[in-house]
Design a protein around this nucleic acid. Structure first.
Length: 428
RNA sequence: GCCCUUGUAGUAUAGCCCGGUCUAGAAUUCGGCCCUGUCACGGCUGAGACGCGGGUUCAAAUCCCGCCGAGGGCGCCA
């Protein structure tokens, strides 16, 4: 079976009138008008109208919507509203038939609910609104890589199967590793810190795993994280890196993804920089003025962040958190050891990223581990690297899926993840 | 783990509150017929549904209980 094409649809144009072309794609619509018919065919680059007339009408036999076709025809001018040329078909080959009934409407005229769409996710990609989200996601990833590589960051890949669950915090998924207990990584934290020894500036974009039974629009059991770690940078330096990544993402997509924005019906607006920087202490004062009393050292609950988010509706950094709220590897402030050189990047109430300056002195790390009731001996593989000339360093991790929801103005990460994993969804 | 909402053809919905009018309605999809410029083509026509189990009642899509599924929120989230 010959499946070759002479052109992608976007390569066809009205100046090619009279030219014979071969292209292919999926039948989006089929309108039979007695002795003539129109069909619209889509490939990944665009959509094209095909006209069938007279003797050729027999070509339509067995043809239905969403089937894969290869069209041989001639370019001619068109009277269509949305096309200035069309292809008069001389042959239509059905390469693969779409069955009936399809589980969702792939054109999206009737928007199926998220459950049905996720169960038929591959087919959902024929819906241009969904496809646009993932085209944007691809552009976002490219943009992040571009910004980081320009700043001398090196992309790394750390293991997702890890041998120790002793970091504390979120629950991990356990698995059997040839008879040994192993876990799915919840973060590249320790590995990326170690890499600053030789590579100085590293980043990773990868899936990580949390075994928390969260039922919200912003948590998944498997999520994509963007992580960086950089030697000789303080926390404010990596905040600057983060800010420029975010601004670049918005700029790149806003300028270069007009079609996608049209399809999803949302205009991406580039945020104003620099982002506001609010200290934890100041946030407590703001909350206090809203009659929300929080003791210093208490964590900010979701409801508190929602209140803060009302005061700061866009991007802002929440900085200088109390040490006791932060993990063992976070560095304290010189002028106030109760406070840390740390930050979260918020979008309103939504936490997008969290990071800070790390301890690089192994003795300090050991005592901090003990303070947090963690056993230094189970961190020996990690701690030994700190004796090999560990530079002062800072870094952060950002939830890519959450950034995507902010970018396109929706509030469920499941919309921006191909096959989301949550406590109630393991398939497909 | 807790709370709220919800389940009607392939899809997306009306009906449910206030039981009888439901032989469950309109749309789209799918099948058949007609149609030479459609563009959400049109016209005629046909097929297709009350998540499962129990209960109340003369009567249940509608009210009640259980189960199952779904959506959302809280909590959890170094």
């Amino acid at each position: 079976m010959d499946i070759s094409r002479t052109h992608l649809i976007e390569e066809l144009n009205s100046s090619m009138e009279g030219k014979d072309v071969i292209f292919g794609g999926w039948v989006v619509d089929l309108r039979k008008l007695g002795k003539m018919a129109f069909l619209t065919v889509r490939d990944v680059t665009g959509m094209c109208q095909v006209i069938v007339k007279g003797d050729s009408m027999s070509l339509l036999e067995g043809l239905n919507r969403q089937s894969v076709v290869r069209i041989l025809g001639k370019i001619q001018s068109s009277k269509a509203k949305d096309f200035d040329f069309e292809v008069s078909a001389t042959e239509i080959q059905v390469l693969a038939k779409a069955e009936y009934p399809l589980p969702i409407d792939p054109i999206g005229r009737l928007e199926s609910d998220i459950d049905n769409r996720l169960n038929s996710r591959a087919l959902d990609m024929r819906n241009q609104k969904t496809a646009s989200i993932f085209k944007l996601r691809s552009k976002v990833l490219a943009s992040i890589r571009e910004t980081l590589i320009k700043r001398k960051f090196i992309e790394i890949n750390t293991p997702k199967i890890i041998g120790s669950a002793s970091e504390g915090g979120a629950d991990l998924f356990g698995l059997d590793y040839f008879g040994q207990k192993a876990y799915l990584a919840q973060s590249p934290q320790l590995y990326k810190e170690q890499m600053t020894i030789g590579l100085e500036r590293v980043f990773e974009i990868s899936s990580f795993y949390r075994a928390e039974k969260s039922h919200t629009g912003r948590h998944l059991s498997e999520f994509t994280s963007v992580d960086i770690e950089a030697a000789m940078m303080d926390y404010t330096d990596v905040m600057d890196v983060l800010e420029s990544i975010v601004v670049d993402v918005f700029k790149n997509t806003s300028e270069n993804c007009k079609t996608e924005q049209q399809e999803i019906g949302y205009e991406i607006k580039v945020p104003i920089s620099p982002f506001e920087r609010v200290t934890y202490t100041h946030a407590l004062e703001e909350l206090s003025s809203m009659d929300i009393k929080i003791e210093f050292g208490e964590d900010l609950q979701d409801s508190h962040l929602r209140s803060l988010g009302e005061k700061h509706p866009g991007f802002f950094f929440l900085t200088d958190w109390p040490m006791k709220l932060k993990p063992f590897y976070i560095h304290e402030k010189d002028d106030d050891p109760k406070l840390s050189r740390s930050f979260d990047l918020q979008y309103g109430y939504l936490e997008l990223s969290s990071g800070g300056r790390r301890l690089h002195d192994p003795e300090q790390l050991r005592s901090r581990l003990k303070e947090q009731d963690l056993d230094p001996t189970s961190f020996e593989e990690h701690l030994k690297t700190f004796g090999w000339g560990m530079p002062p360093h800072s870094g952060w991790g950002m939830g890519l899926d959450r950034l995507m929801t902010v970018l396109i103005g929706i509030d469920n990460v499941r919309e921006v993840v191909l096959y989301p994993r949550d406590p109630d969804r393991l398939k497909p």
